[in-house]
């Protein structure tokens, strides 16, 4: 159950993903905000996660929980590119009867593991998932993606303290950091995680080799985090 590369399907290149995103947005070019998660998602589905449409119910599949549910275009495009649902579904984006809304719904979209939208829910759910994998003696891991401002939520603090405290090493947290938290201090996210017993690395969120290396990293007895640094939201908006 390695990453999917469907026979006869075009390879999942950056160009292919952005072309699929255009079917969602109608735009040929995509803003930095719309692509903040794109490189992380491309690396996760292309090189890291052991998931495929054919093994969607495999109890030993890796879990990817997109907790930061807003701006899901890149996520939908990556899932379509990897064959989780037909590409023409992308053309229905936000229609009344479309499975694809502005926040993903796991009951509507194949390949989506959690429904998200309200911030601060994915990390506690991933803690439960990591416990379930441990109970089932599964070799799978759970990777949860949050935005830097999402870490403002108290529920994230609860999960960070607890997961570090018990050493939940099936859990990986990816923080896409575009400095959107109102009281952000650069470098504090990894300090905070390390203080609670996590392994934490900050890498260039656009550098696929560095992302792959960091996302492959596992530390026995510790949850680990990858802080993917992308362009600041405020600067990107200018």
């Amino acid at each position: 159950m390695t990453s999917p590369q469907i026979l006869g399907a075009p390879p999942v290149t950056r160009e292919r993903i952005t072309a699929l995103m255009s079917r969602l947005t109608g735009d040929e070019k995509h803003t930095v905000a719309a692509t903040s998660t794109l490189d992380v998602l491309q690396v996760l589905y292309g090189r890291i996660l052991r998931v495929s449409p054919a093994a969607a119910d495999d109890p030993d599949r890796d879990r990817f929980y997109l907790s930061k549910g807003h701006g899901p275009m890149a996520f939908y495009a990556v899932l379509a590119a990897h064959g989780f649902f037909p590409e023409d579904v992308l053309d229905t984006f936000t229609d009344f009867d479309s499975p694809l809304g502005l926040h993903p719904d796991r009951l509507l979209v194949p390949g989506v593991e959690i429904s998200s939208g309200s911030l601060g829910h994915g990390l506690p759910l991933a803690v439960g998932a990591a416990h379930a994998l441990r109970i089932r003696r599964s070799p799978a891991r759970v990777i949860v993606l949050v935005g830097d401002a999402e870490l403002d939520e108290g529920s994230c603090t609860e999960a960070i303290e607890y997961a570090g405290g018990i050493g939940l090493d099936a859990l990986t947290l990816v923080v896409v950091d575009n400095a959107s938290s109102s009281y952000a201090v650069r470098g504090r996210i990894e300090q905070r995680l390390r203080a609670h017993g996590w392994d934490a690395l900050r890498v260039d969120g656009r550098d696929h080799a560095r992302l792959e290396e960091a996302l492959s990293r596992r530390v026995p007895g510790r949850p680990n985090a990858v802080i993917a640094q992308v362009e600041d939201k405020a600067e990107a908006a200018r």
């Binding site: 879990r63 506690p124 803690v127 439960g128 416990h131 529920s155 607890y162």
Partner: peptide, 17 residues
């Protein structure tokens, strides 16, 4: 940690426990 209490329970349920 009550938010984590329910979230963790739900994460278990999502994964067959």
């Amino acid at each position: 940690r009550e938010q984590l209490l329910v979230g963790t329970g739900a994460g278990l349920a999502l994964n067959g426990i």
